[in-house]
Design a binder for these strands. Structure first.
Length: 140
DNA sequence: CGAATTTGACCAGCGC
DNA sequence: GCGCTGGTCAAATTCG
């Protein structure tokens, strides 16, 4: 963890900020391949085959920051952290420990399902989230 | 009453 | 240069 936190201050909410660091931890080079369900919110663990999805077939859907090959100050402040992962759940709002407020919805041609845009509504948290259903797996 | 959600419109970037 | 797609904002509405 280096500069993952948008606001590395000693605010009273540094408690969940610290939690955020743990969630962003898998953006680095150490993906929990041996323990894919370690970063899965317990709320998602409603099925029994979800853990298998993470380590079996969906393990190649992870994409780290795209600004790695640049090696310059190109967009280091714009693209701080970009993590893509697939979860299997009936609900779109996964409780990562934060409050997500929906601010937009868009229909994408890539998928018959609408894409939702969420923003962290917690004070000091400027994280944005893009959530869309898998066209092959509406539950994902 | 306040906060969250919804939906449409607007803007920017990219491809042709 | 124009059109298209994706992303964000803002006003109105709904729910707690």
């Amino acid at each position: 963890m280096t500069d993952k936190n948008p606001k590395p201050q000693d605010s009273p909410d540094s408690g969940f900020i610290n939690e955020l660091s743990e969630y962003l931890n898998f953006d680095g080079d150490q993906w929990p391949d041996d323990d894919p369900d370690s970063f899965v919110p317990e709320h998602v663990l409603t099925q029994d085959n979800q853990a298998n999805e993470f380590g079996a077939s969906s393990g190649s859907h992870f994409e780290g920051a795209s600004s790695r090959d640049v090696g310059n100050e190109r967009e280091k402040k714009e693209v701080i952290d970009r993590v893509a992962f697939k979860t299997k759940s009936e609900v779109e709002i996964l409780d990562d420990g934060f409050k997500w407020r929906k601010y937009g919805k868009k229909m994408v041609k890539n998928s018959p399902n609408p894409r939702n845009y969420y923003k962290c509504s917690v004070d000091g948290c400027a994280v944005k989230k893009r959530v869309e259903r898998d066209k092959d797996d509406p539950s994902s």
